[in-house]
Amino acid sequence: MTEFLQQVLNGVSLGAIYALIALGYTMVYGVLRFINFAHSDVFMLGAFVGWAAVERLHLPTRSFGGGLAALALAMAVCAILGVVIEKLAYKPLRNRSTLTVLITAIGVSLLIQNVSQNPTIGFGPNPRAFPELFPARQIHLGGLTVSTNQIVVLAVTVVLLAVLYWIVHRTKTGTAMRALSFNATAASLVGINNDRIISFTFALGSALAGAGGVLYATNYPSIDPLMGTLPGLKAFVAAVLGGIGNLPGAALGGLLIGLVETFVSGTRLSTFRDAIAFAILIAILLFRPAGLLGKLKVEKV
């Protein structure tokens, strides 16, 4: 029983990070109907901003204040990056086919990865150690061991999800986002500046990815320019599992993928972990293409 609860805890703290990344995929899909494959690289850059905050700007390590400041900085930088990527790469293709934008997204992703791997203008290919942002301690609850880092991940994720919910459902901009995802033409007819809302969506999604990057690096303190690829793919699976375009779905999908991976890893099937995550993607696409919480839309012709 203790082992089971410990695995649930491990799974939830991994899943929370997938959820943060998945939200970015799902929000962009909601407004633009394409998968922003560069999202996983924004996640990676978030981790590097967190690293730079300590190593270059000398924020204090092992303190909640310093850690939260690094987190906020990573979110701000990633929000700006997200907007820049959108303006440079996706805006000129606004009325082209989705496939064109999708391939551009893959191109942007490869560009960021390769520039980051260059030792002179990027970070270089070597994995580097991520500093201890938050004071790392273990708390024992009966047979369970919880690390403060896991608590930080869960707390930050819950707070960010609450803020996101508030923005999307309680603010004017959020209403505009929902209107845009519902019907872009009608939204512009009622006076919504679509370009501005799309930029805002990218900023919001990228900020969450940046936070995810810092939290991921806090838990797995070895960062490199290709670190985003696999978590990015898993988060994509999570977004599809929950129903792409659906915000609570992305959060639910992230948690489920985290739990499934953890439970598979704790058994003899551990080496099939990634295969099982992707098998879930295939199964969902076959049997419930709209995802767990999504509603199937019939395309009218």
């Binding site: 410990q6 991994l14 070895s222 696999l230 704790g266 080496t271």
Partner: peptide, 20 residues
């Protein structure tokens, strides 16, 4: 005996199983 794949970053599940 627990197994992982190269490049994995999360070993908590395997270590939890070993510890138990």
């Amino acid at each position: 005996e627990q197994r992982f794949s190269g490049g994995d970053k999360d070993f908590r599940a395997q270590l939890t199983a070993l510890k138990s």
